[in-house]
Design a binder for these strands. Structure first.
Lengths: 297, 297
DNA sequence: AGAGGTTACGGGCAGCGTAAGGATC
DNA sequence: GATCCTTACGCTGCCCGTAACCTCT
């Protein structure tokens, strides 16, 4: 009689197409996974996985079992929540967060998450959106707050908040009063997110005027670094004003009025769907309400 | 993380309202059951069962878990059949059979059951219908072919066959030719099923004529005994002719034409519904087709 | 006293981790 | 040679069974 543990191990091997990956995912060793899979195949008298040289693929029977395994694991998760309640939902949830969120409502989210799920440990990893996306599809993250949505079939998305971008510069920069033209703007380096991110790509497209010089870009994955460079007068930053509230308040940075409106950045909570998505989904919904309460919806 | 084995044990304890009963049902010892239940309660941090002095009842949480447990066990059974196929469905199925069935198509059923489910062992118990019914509700039988249907909410029924009853007596009985009147009939003891069975009750009701003497009843739980007494000329038997084919063919018994038609006996395959009813249901359907093929539908 | 659940204790075995082996690119 | 799965092996700890204990009728 197959036990749930075996089905869970099979589920992750099939999902990740890797014994090793499943072992890491389940905090065990790779031979242990091998043994359980072998035992499961023997128990059912059926070959479940084709071990290729550098790939593991499910057989037809394996795919059928995968479907059942997912349903059973889902049922167990639902059962645990129904019986033991949210307080008992435990374990580690690996959360990836884009830096912008860190500077806005992440700490409030952590507080409320801890209050709702005291037995859950959040492993937080701050990184840029493309890396977070990779982490989600590779199942090394259970949930991420990133510039979304993530357009993958196995990833679910929930919109969190939109931040309009704005130009902000040190008041020492001789920009003069009144709206700044694009030409004047392009005389300074643009300090913002890396080129690989969507808002920066859109910004560059908006700034690229025929005949004008290409904008100089000072990109950084670190918001703190962007702000620091802007305060130092190195150039003009493009950021959501909300992450620079302190600098704007104490006058070390000023918003720059221009005749172009930079794009807005939209964030989503995104997670890989699966039998254990319950906690991720609940936390995503919590994040949504926290973001809304923070007035950034 | 609760394993299926624990949920299965809990299921049976809750269902049978007994640790001991569950232990027997699952071929294990009572302390083992105690331990699993205690561990399960500790795991979930919830009391599942109230151990009364002479009774075990589920708590509210226990009832909720019971629902999930049944769904999970059902899913596992379905999965096993889907993946491993019917050949791999194994274990012991305790089948109760009314004696009439033994004399008609039981052996054919056993053959076909063995062919379809080679890994299943049939534990067969021949008894009278009331005892079989008790066995079903007490979960000591997984399936029974009896005079049904069994009107219990937790018992499912599938009609199998109907046998008209007939009067049969030794040719040495001086009954004379032509139809026998009720009065003449009542001069002899009626040899048939025990008083507690439905066909006998109906028969007695039909024979009870105003002013006439009450019929003398020679009841036996054993069909072979009934036939033996009839062949010995002790009285007139009331039986389905199909179980006395040999005696009718070799002339040791003759059908007695009368002006009343005795009732028919109807048999059903009946089994307790539950997460593991799959095999019982399949065998019940098989029995239905065997009975139909035997021409007794 | 007897039925039924709990506690205590010892042994067997499943399952895990470490380490070595083998296949494929 | 690097990567990934398999096999071998020793050990831990879970789980089961036996037996004694407790409680209620």
């Amino acid at each position: 009689m197959p036990e749930l543990r075996s089905l869970e191990i099979f589920y992750w091997v099939a999902q990740l197409r890797s014994f090793r990956g499943a072992a890491e995912r389940l905090n065990t060793t790779q031979p242990a996974v091998s043994q359980r899979i072998a035992a499961l195949e023997a128990e059912l008298g059926v070959r479940l996985l084709d071990r290729g040289a550098r790939s593991v693929v499910t057989t037809a029977q394996g795919r059928r079992l995968l479907d059942y395994a997912e349903r059973m694991l889902r049922l167990r998760a639902e059962m645990l929540e129904a019986i033991a309640g949210a307080e008992a939902v435990g374990g580690v949830l690996r959360l990836g967060v884009a830096e912008t969120i860190v500077h806005t409502w992440l700490s409030r989210f952590i507080e409320r998450a801890h209050a709702l799920f005291p037995a859950v440990t959040l492993d937080i990893e701050v990184d840029v959106t493309p890396n977070l996306r990779t982490g989600l599809v590779g199942h090394t993250l259970d949930l991420a707050f990133l510039m979304g949505p993530v357009a993958e079939p196995s990833i679910a998305n929930l919109p969190l908040c939109r931040y309009p971008l704005a130009f902000a510069a040190s008041p020492r920069l001789p920009l003069g009063p009144g709206p700044v033209t694009i030409d004047a703007l392009l005389g300074w380096p643009i300090i913002t997110y890396p080129r690989s991110t969507r808002p920066t790509m859109e910004l560059l497209a908006a700034l690229r005027m025929p005949g004008a010089a290409a904008p100089r870009l000072f990109a950084s994955t670190s918001l703190a670094t962007i702000l620091r460079m802007a305060r130092d007068g190195i150039g003009i930053s493009v950021i959501p004003p909300v992450v620079a509230a302190r600098e704007l308040a104490d006058g070390t940075l000023c918003l720059v009025a221009t005749d172009i409106t930079p794009p807005a950045v939209a964030f989503t909570a995104s997670w890989p769907t699966g039998p254990e998505e319950g906690l991720a989904r609940r936390l995503a919904e919590l994040a949504q309400s926290v973001a809304a309460a923070a007035g950034h919806a």
